[in-house]
């Protein structure tokens, strides 16, 4: 079942075409990797899907409904979760409170002024933390977490609205190789279990070729290739503009 269908997405900044007629789709349970050189338009694409940037033209359909141009909070309400390149969490709160705030926002309980926030949705928050393996750190301050743990907390927050689509911008940036695989394996198992569609950008080819079901490649705002790992690896254009010879990214073995 197609969760996200993007068609003819266009965006330019001051005359420079950042994204030029990009189309692709993501199905439930699928992990789609969006790769390409630095400055190819990946972030712009992402920010349009998430609602932070309005596309000039094109259609972004979430479960058949066009969400192009909606604000980030509307997009979130329609079931799109997001993690950021630099993990964005709430530093003045504990790990559990971070998830509680997301749950409160999801259930539209923000405009309440009396009952302490700490008393709301504790079992639900703990269940989400258990999913990402952070239950035992629930009481700690988010600001003192190790970076890998912070990324997992961010994942729990992004899952609080039971999203249909999860957007992950360079999810493993700043992590050690072993942690990278662990985080993405976790995401993959969540995706297949919950029928979640995942779209992620990534520069670590071990992660991309290790977990992605399908890969799309952007270059200068245009989609130049689409397919599974072996197809992408074998594509001469992708090699030329992005993959290189493979000596520093694990080779081109399949």
């Amino acid at each position: 079942m197609t969760v996200l269908a993007v068609a003819g997405l266009v965006k330019s900044f001051g005359g420079v075409q950042a994204v030029n007629g990009v189309s692709f789709s993501v199905a439930a349970g699928e992990m789609l990797a969006l790769i390409g050189p630095n400055g190819a338009g990946k972030s712009t694409c992402f920010n349009m899907l998430n609602g932070q940037i309005k596309p000039d033209s094109g259609r972004i359909a979430l479960n058949g409904r066009n969400i192009a141009g909606l604000s980030p909070n509307r997009v979130w309400r329609l079931g799109v979760g997001r993690t950021f390149q630099i993990a964005a969490t709430f530093a003045s709160m504990t790990v559990r409170e971070n998830v509680q705030v997301a749950l409160l926002a999801h259930r539209r309980h923000i405009w309440r002024f009396w009952r302490p926030a700490a008393a709301w949705f504790v079992p639900e928050a703990d269940a989400l933390l258990t999913q990402v393996g952070m239950r035992d750190q629930a009481e700690r301050a988010a600001s003192v977490l190790a970076y890998g743990d912070l990324k997992r907390l961010e994942l729990a927050i992004a899952l609080a609205n039971a999203p249909r689509l999860l957007l992950m911008d360079e999810p493993t940036a700043g992590m050690a190789p072993a942690e990278r695989t662990a985080l993405m394996q976790l995401t993959r198992s969540l995706a297949s279990r919950q029928g979640l569609a995942v779209l992620f950008t990534e520069h670590d080819m071990d992660v991309v070729f290790g977990v992605a079901t399908r890969i799309v490649v952007l270059n200068r705002g245009e989609l130049i290739a689409e397919g599974d790992g072996p197809t992408i690896r074998a594509d001469p254009r992708v090699r030329a503009v992005y993959l290189g010879s493979g000596v520093t990214s694990g080779g081109h073995r399949c």
Binding site: G36, P37, G174, H203, L243, G244, G246, V247, T248, S249
Partner: peptide, 16 residues
């Protein structure tokens, strides 16, 4: 400190 972080593979190669 982490010179290859966040860079496309072809750039990482140039860096090397």
């Amino acid at each position: 400190d982490e010179p290859s972080e966040g860079l496309a593979p072809v750039i990482v190669e140039e860096m090397a």
